[in-house]
Simulated assay, not measured.
Amino acid sequence: MKGLKITALGMALAFAGGAQAQLAGKNVILIHGLQGDDIAENPTSQQEIEQNGDAYWQAFWASRAEARIDWGSHERVEGRTAERAFNQLVEISQQGLCSEGCIVVTHSTGDLVGRYVLDNQARWLSNAGLEPLNVVAALDFAGAGGGSELADLAVNAAYADSFGDELAKLAVTAYLGTAPTPENLGVLRDLQPAVARNLATSPNSVPRLRFVGGGSNYGGLTGPFLPGKDDGVVALHSTCGGTQVGSYKSCVSNVALDGKRTSVSAPSGLYYNHYPVLMGEKVDHSQVINTESGNTLTYANNGFSVSGVSVNFQTETYEERPWWKLWGSGDTYQVVTDSEQSSVSGLVYQTLN
């Protein structure tokens, strides 16, 4: 992006202590999702944005990463967010953190920001006389790269003279924690599906591994405004990496979110180099990156390797006959073995290592 200038950074590089912070032998860079407090408070300093970014990942990933790209949700992706990202990329490049390869971990809207960064970082850094980052893969938890209909709802609410639909008003407030106005929409404008799906969509060489849920969030207030199955914030058309908006019940057409092998609606096409991996019917939007366990997970893709990252979860199948089914065979389920004993992020971290 033209006109980007290098500035000094403080907390953006969150060193976590040598090899202990690596994943599959690679240093980890975190890109967080939308933060409602930014929409409400419009933080002005890079230090405050970095503090918010650090707090975002504390549940699990903070101690397992070498760096973060922190951004403000009150700003646009192609504007101030790009400038902040460039400045942090400069320091990551100067430190040589990706000389042996890096893995980017994103959550929610971080998927969209990460896609824009990955699409531009080589050009930005080369133009600055620096070595581009060698990113070998991205792990996208509850990725919103295809946008969220809640952003449409928030933008409409911001411009409505009278927001008559009380349920919609409650959903927006639950999602953001504040009432949207035309002045504080920020990344919500980019998160609208029609906008998100036209932002940095060129194919690139970085594999995107997707981890998705279908659990309810915000007391179920937001679900009615999201098509098909969703995690309370983002619908499957986005989290799976689908090329089109649609009402889907799984990332793949032969396995439901609960692991049942059955015919189910799924995206007919995925963005280039996007691989849905784990799915959890009861996992909500925030649970994918925290330490909560107790959710059984299934898999959309397993037993493959991309860019030296091996995806090989231990799995099993079983049959279960519903109590009301008096004859015939039961239903077949495929699940990740003992997945309920770990959090989603914990299981991913352990397995990919």
Results as ranks from 00 to 15, higher is better:
residue 273 N to Y: 02
residue 319 E to K: 07
residue 155 V to L: 11
residue 101 G to T: 06
residue 166 E to R: 13
residue 283 V to A: 09
residue 329 S to C: 10
residue 58 Q to R: 15
residue 258 D to G: 05
residue 281 E to F: 01
residue 147 G to A: 11
residue 182 P to C: 03
residue 26 K to F: 11
residue 146 G to D: 02
residue 162 S to W: 13
residue 49 I to T: 02
residue 244 Q to Y: 08
residue 179 A to T: 15
residue 23 L to I: 11
residue 247 S to V: 05
residue 341 Q to I: 00
residue 197 R to Q: 07
residue 117 V to T: 05
residue 53 G to E: 06
residue 242 G to W: 01
residue 330 G to H: 12
residue 350 Q to D: 14
residue 330 G to L: 11
residue 282 K to E: 01
residue 101 G to I: 08
residue 212 V to Q: 04
residue 324 W to L: 07
residue 341 Q to P: 03
residue 313 F to L: 03
residue 136 V to K: 03
residue 79 G to T: 07
residue 50 E to W: 08
residue 86 F to E: 04
residue 43 P to K: 00
residue 150 L to N: 06
residue 336 V to Q: 09
residue 312 N to R: 11
residue 162 S to P: 00
residue 143 G to W: 01
residue 143 G to T: 01
residue 266 A to C: 02
residue 346 G to H: 09
residue 28 V to K: 10
residue 142 A to M: 08
residue 292 E to F: 09
residue 265 S to H: 02
residue 302 N to V: 06
residue 222 T to W: 12
residue 209 L to T: 01
residue 218 Y to M: 11
residue 153 L to E: 04
residue 243 T to C: 07
residue 20 Q to S: 15
residue 346 G to I: 06
residue 199 L to S: 08
residue 327 W to T: 13
residue 198 N to T: 13
residue 213 G to Y: 12
residue 76 R to V: 03
residue 226 L to G: 08
residue 222 T to A: 14
residue 185 L to F: 11
residue 189 R to M: 09
residue 4 L to Y: 10
residue 138 A to C: 09
residue 54 D to F: 11
residue 22 Q to C: 15
residue 263 S to L: 09
residue 292 E to D: 14
residue 252 V to L: 12
residue 81 T to F: 00
residue 202 S to M: 12
residue 238 S to A: 08
residue 89 L to F: 05
residue 127 N to P: 06
residue 178 T to N: 11
residue 324 W to V: 08
residue 6 I to V: 14
residue 158 A to P: 10
residue 297 L to I: 01
residue 331 D to N: 13
residue 263 S to E: 10
residue 311 V to K: 02
residue 142 A to C: 13
residue 209 L to M: 05
residue 238 S to H: 05
residue 320 E to H: 15
residue 22 Q to R: 15
residue 70 D to M: 05
residue 169 K to V: 12
residue 170 L to T: 12
residue 323 W to K: 15
residue 125 L to H: 11
residue 104 V to D: 01
residue 319 E to N: 08
residue 275 Y to L: 02
residue 163 F to Y: 14
residue 311 V to G: 00
residue 132 P to W: 10
residue 241 G to S: 04
residue 220 G to D: 12
residue 248 Y to A: 00
residue 308 G to H: 09
residue 243 T to K: 11
residue 146 G to V: 03
residue 158 A to E: 12
residue 142 A to R: 07
residue 253 S to D: 14
residue 304 F to S: 00
residue 316 E to F: 13
residue 237 H to F: 15
residue 90 V to S: 00
residue 16 A to L: 12
residue 111 D to W: 04
residue 121 Q to D: 08
residue 108 S to V: 05
residue 334 Q to L: 09
residue 352 L to V: 04
residue 178 T to E: 13
residue 97 L to G: 01
residue 141 F to T: 03
residue 327 W to G: 03
residue 201 T to A: 08
residue 115 R to W: 00
residue 71 W to R: 01
residue 31 I to P: 04
residue 335 V to N: 03
residue 243 T to E: 14
residue 335 V to E: 09
residue 171 A to E: 12
residue 210 R to Y: 05
residue 113 V to N: 04
residue 60 F to C: 04
residue 257 L to E: 01
residue 152 D to N: 15
residue 327 W to N: 05
residue 130 L to K: 13
residue 9 L to R: 13
residue 13 L to E: 08
residue 122 A to V: 05
residue 222 T to F: 12
residue 96 G to I: 11
residue 246 G to V: 07
residue 41 E to A: 10
